[in-house]
Simulated scan of single mutants.
Amino acid sequence: MNDKVLSHYDVMTVGEMPSSKPEDAISYTGLDSHELNMVFQFQHVALEPNPDKRLGKWNDQPVKLPELKTALSRWQKALDGKGWNSLYWNNHDQPRAVSRFANDDPKYRVRAAKMLGTTLHMMQGTPFVFEGEELGMPNVHYTSIDQYEDLESINAYRELVEEKKLVDGPTMLKYLANISRDNARTPMPWDAGKNAGFSNVKPWFALNPTYKEINAKAVLEDKDSVFYHYQKLIQLRHDSDLVKFGTYDEIDPDDAEVFAYRRHYQSKTLLVISNFTANTVTRDYDQGKADKLVISNYDDDQGTELRPYESKVYVFN
């Protein structure tokens, strides 16, 4: 494919490679390979299957942070100097990241969405932003099987509830509300008007019921929105060789509340700290010795105190 087609064009290529290991990615995308530029791996988005193997991925339990850190850190370390990571939280086959990995309660949603963005965008690799992620879009939280369009979800309900009777209807609906693909497939909300500004006619699928508050027009009018935080993160990547090229060192991989890591490049160090909980916790990573606080999702810095879903990035020169 590369020999006959891709090599003739100035393009960047990404391979969708479920079940791939870092060694597979290196064989196709390594610096000495030419087949592809990078791959989408699925380790971090395949976490937390149901303990009952008969139910497969269907579950309503939150992802355990140590497992998430293990998955992401594995790829950061394995591809460093050998290949290039794709960085993503969402795609059309996955639920909304803020609902799955953080908290979509209106009290926390914006802060939590910014925290997830910061955690991922400061890693080594190329970030991919899925439609609506930059708005902090949550899951749709449907409560009836009749509201679903996704055949995977509908067929799973029919098989597991009606045919095999492995789980009751209300429980299965909780599973679907947590992880169904339809969560990411609602039409893009452009404004609070008719059909969320998506089209003049009724779209193929129901709108996310949050569209009157969470839409592109609203976030552009709010200077403290998730959208503008993502802009800042992307600009940081453009401006900083430390963010682009730095090596990766995880900090306390067993910590079930805080995801922290360092990036090193030449004589500089980047420290990234993210509180994945709704609680205030305390962590000391020598952030008091930093030369600069680069970005944060709070207006002030409380040092070793981390408020709910707080995320901040420091530079040490």
Rank of each mutant, 00 (worst) to 15 (best):
I179V: 14
V219C: 05
A192S: 15
D182R: 04
I179Q: 13
N208R: 03
N178K: 14
L173R: 06
G197E: 09
R185N: 00
R185E: 01
G193F: 08
K165M: 10
R181T: 05
L176A: 07
T171R: 11
K217H: 11
V201H: 12
A156R: 03
L160Q: 08
G193S: 05
A216C: 01
F198I: 04
E213R: 10
Y175N: 08
N208L: 02
A196I: 07
S199Y: 09
T171W: 10
L176D: 01
L220R: 15
L160A: 12
V201T: 15
K165I: 04
V167T: 07
T171Y: 06
E159R: 15
K165N: 12
P189F: 09
R181I: 07
T210E: 10
K217C: 05
A196W: 02
L173V: 00
D168A: 08
T171M: 09
R185Q: 05
V219E: 10
T171D: 09
R185G: 00
D191Q: 05
A156I: 02
K174D: 09
M172N: 11
I179K: 13
L160V: 12
N178E: 14
W204H: 07
G197P: 07
T186K: 03
F205P: 00
M188I: 08
V201W: 07
N195A: 04
A196Q: 04
T186I: 04
A216N: 02
I154R: 09
E162Q: 15
W190T: 10
G193T: 05
K223M: 12
E163T: 15
Y211C: 11
S153W: 00
R158P: 03
D168R: 12
A206L: 09
N215L: 06
A216P: 00
